[in-house]
Design a binder for these strands. Structure first.
Lengths: 335, 335
DNA sequence: CATGTCTTCTAGATCGTTCTAGTTTGACCA
DNA sequence: TGGTCAAACTAGAACGATCTAGAAGACATG
């Protein structure tokens, strides 16, 4: 293998094109102040040499990287969907995205440090678990946008989905199908779990129904465990914290010969890609990942560019009805 | 919101401690050449000011970023598992990882550019789809390691799993359980699909059995489609291209009332996290994501640091037997 | 012809580090 | 006392870009 090539610099391009470094800089940035003919010549030289601007040097001098830092959790498929959408929106706004995963042995704080180290001008954190103080501290250095969590203090922007409306939609939908015994399998320690649980309780009471909460979590296993608990006293409908949990519940029921939606209706949350799969066909509350991602990227870019805009954005989710929810079975009334 | 703070610099710390910038640099890097007493004084001053080294400037000067670029596909859960493991290995080696996703509207070339822009010293690409020439071109600038694909030319290192051995294990396992009618649902256009398909054919013939290939893909939907095709003339065992496809096949069979493993055994590939879920319990060929990731990171770091080592590493996969494979049903012999 | 005004281009400072090549300090020894 | 040597410290040049201020040339105007 031959020796690695040194990366060409502005100086190299300048020499090749017979102009000064400054002019090459002007051309590369697309700034005004270069004659069209020289511009072409410089661009030609740059592409001949395979020149690419060194973002570190650029940042050092200009404090602009056009880089958005996005922290996500590698184990959540829904986060992956947001990541995809964020790329699209960022590139439309002329920014790049740099990712950092929160994984098993890699805490959120570490992920954020990495993002700042590579020069992210703003931070977008999906479902941050850091304390409000901690987030505020970072916000003194760069704009911070929290996605899917809204209690983040006054210094951090948030883009979230209206959990209240989402759960209300879920309960209304099931009630309108004649269900009265509707159980909620919660998200355990997950970020919006408390909010959804309490909203579920309030909504049930508003409908004159008895709320029943079973503890769950964010994964299929949690859903399965909850499903087992439920078998003892089967409700007619279940609202799960998210789609993965819903899947677990369904698997458990299926294994026990309980028909979905014949015996029990199951409603998920997130409308993940796999909810759409033909063999799953899960009814779910959609938070619309592309819209959320676009809003978060928009907020981050606005902040960077000094455009004033509201501190927090709340999007209203909507219901996607597929094949796991149906009319309540007859004669199976409450209590 | 208050104005963003200016970050303190080496100069600020130097003034506060009454020493030169260079000495502060020495202390902050933990380099030898500073008296213990001054070292303490400088560290004190630095922490008083809340000083954090500006990595952009540092890296610009030292031409070391200690950054590994990792390109992965956001829609593949197996890639996410590799990403997790790569983080762990990189940090053990004293490197950081910067990610770039290949998503719908974001081609691999774009992902790689981003990685180079932020200063990655080496590229690790999971299942690259770029041409050998294209990869070689990047390899002239930085070391490139291909993960899960081994035909990448002489200038690019590769770390892959031995598909030959993997499929052989799969076929042997099923044959040893008495299966004779074993079908392969292939991966369509996926990176190692051709190799696995041909190996399957060869292995079947070696065992004196008739190979049957059904076209599939990398997702659950592909598996489902293949499952439908298979129902017409049911085999006793199916080897799927990956776990997601296997899941699709199983769902299709289950819906048709076909018992797994009572009527048909199903074997996946990848041993993804969800294969381990209690309600899936999929037997699968494990490529061992942590080991693959560690090997890839190791190769990249070795290259960066000039340690000579073999150009390609091939790991042998192993079989994880769970509950979707069992003895072939009696009286259901071949053809 | 002097002056003013564009446009196009360039020299040199600068960002916050690290690196190189010293210089100073002080301990030790003949 | 003076010489040697290592340890402690420093000045100033990098790194590769951007930015500021101004020079050079073309052209119009009075």
């Amino acid at each position: 293998m031959s020796e690695l090539q040194r990366r060409p610099t502005l100086m190299d391009v300048a020499e090749a094109a017979g102009v000064s470094r400054a002019l090459v800089s002007i051309v590369m940035r697309g700034a005004p102040g270069a004659a069209e003919s020289t511009r072409q010549r410089v661009l030609q030289a740059a592409s001949d040499l395979g020149y690419r601007a060194d973002s570190r040097a650029r940042l050092l001098r200009s404090s602009r990287t056009k880089l958005l830092g996005l922290a996500f959790s590698s184990s959540q498929p829904f986060h992956a969907e947001i990541v995809d959408a964020a790329y699209a929106e960022a590139s439309a706004r002329g920014y790049e995205i740099t990712l950092s995963a929160v994984a098993g042995g890699r805490p959120e704080a570490r992920a954020i440090e990495t993002l700042l180290d590579v020069g992210a001008e703003a931070l977008i954190i999906i479902a941050p678990t850091l304390s409000v103080d901690n987030l505020a501290q970072h916000a003194r250095q760069v704009p911070v946008v929290s996605l899917l969590r809204d209690d983040v203090g006054e210094y951090v922007d948030s883009v979230s989905s209206d959990d209240y409306a989402g759960i209300a939609l879920a309960v209304d939908h099931l009630v309108s199908l004649g269900h009265r015994r509707i159980v909620h399998v919660d998200g355990g320690t997950a970020v919006s779990s408390d909010k959804r649980r309490e909203t579920y309780r309030a909504e049930m009471i508003r409908h004159g129904l008895q709320p029943v909460v079973v503890s769950g979590g964010t994964g299929e296993e949690d859903g399965m465990r909850a499903g087992h608990t439920l078998q003892a006293d089967l409700p007619t409908a279940v609202i799960a914290f998210n789609d993965r949990s819903a899947l677990g519940v369904m698997e458990c029921f299926r294994a026990a010969g309980i028909g979905i939606p014949a015996d029990v209706s199951v409603l998920g949350y997130d409308d993940s890609n796999f909810a759409k799969l033909s063999y799953v066909q899960l009814s779910s509350v959609s938070q619309d990942a592309p819209l959320l991602a676009a809003a978060a990227v928009g907020r981050a870019v606005d902040r960077i560019e000094g455009v004033s805009s509201p501190g927090s954005v709340v999007r209203t989710p909507h219901l996607v009805i597929r094949k796991t929810t149906a009319r309540a079975p007859e004669g199976n009334s409450d209590t």
